[in-house]
Design a protein around this nucleic acid. Structure first.
Lengths: 167, 167
DNA sequence: TAGATTTATATCATGCCTCTATATAGGCAG
DNA sequence: CTGCCTATATAGAGGCATGATATAAATCTA
């Protein structure tokens, strides 16, 4: 497929323009949202549970800030999660105002279950591809993994210190 | 190329396990929702607008089926979109029951704007990577593009004819 | 120490988005 | 005309987010 690179390096193996990368990542994102999403709990709920699982008991406001939602939203979310038995709330003896939120065993089990579900759906999807295509995808993922991991880390970091063109 | 599914291939160049591919897609979904999402309209709303843009005026029930939501949900969504001036509703002269939904110019502009926003944010994100990492991502995207496209197509098709392990 | 301020969380009202159950209305077959 | 099927709308409920505001504990300050 032809494509012009504007004053680009004349190397014949130039792989993809930034727009193509953006396009591919968008499609990938669409696929992920459309076919890999569980309907049981919301994205923020799952992300919060994952954070509590990784980082231990946390304050409501800290969770809200980390998840990028308002404090009232997090209060409501935690109330729902508590009702579902996925988290518990413990008063902080040091500070009477704060409430520490912790994930329960049921919460961890839900996370594991969701993970299994996604992996299974993905496996089904991959199974529809030819072995050559599967191989190509696996190779690409393997090659891109370190760079992609850094991209994700940078994205998380950019969230804490907002930059120039935040929408 | 021979390729055994389980009972692990002993080849030294095995590129990525299915778990690694799943992991990468999960992280990507997270990245996409967290950093590439506009807050203006919902995912279903944007997807519906995109469909109307690509495929022209459609019936409510067809939209609902394609987007995987119930008909009442789509009715409400279209009502909201109409209130925002992003779609119009036209009665079908052939069949007094049906309503044809069409995207407006404002709707198309919103889609374009959202796309610009995502591409810009993604470009900012990519710019945080080293040239080597950018190259690695671009190469991987280029290599995986055809296989990935087929994966996306199969996923869309699988939605219409639900298979065995639907969650 | 008393009063003001800040901090952590909760509550309220509102709107989006989805669901299930049901209603309305047009098309069609007998 | 009667009855059924189809396309859309409405009602009621709950999840999920918001901004505005209330409450209570901690902390600063005069």
């Amino acid at each position: 497929m032809e494509y012009t690179q504007q004053s680009g390096p004349r190397e014949p193996d130039v792989p993809a323009t930034r727009e193509q990368v953006a396009e591919a990542l968008e499609q990938l994102a669409f696929l992920a949202v459309r076919h890999l999403t569980n309907r049981d709990i919301s994205f923020t709920a799952a992300s919060t549970l994952g954070r509590l699982s990784r980082e231990g008991p946390s304050r409501l406001t800290a969770l809200a800030a980390d998840e990028g939602v308002t404090q009232p939203s997090m209060t409501q979310l935690i109330q729902r999660l508590e009702r579902q038995g996925l988290v518990t709330r413990v008063d902080d003896p040091q500070d009477g105002r704060v409430v520490l939120v912790a994930i329960t065993d049921a919460g961890r089990e839900l996370l594991a279950e969701r993970r299994r579900g996604r992996t299974n759906r993905l496996a089904e999807l991959l199974a529809t591809l030819s072995p050559e295509d599967q191989q190509a995808l696996a190779t690409a993922v393997h090659a891109a993994a370190p760079a992609f991991q850094r991209l994700v880390d940078n994205a998380a970091r950019a969230r804490k210190a907002p930059g120039s063109t935040a929408s």
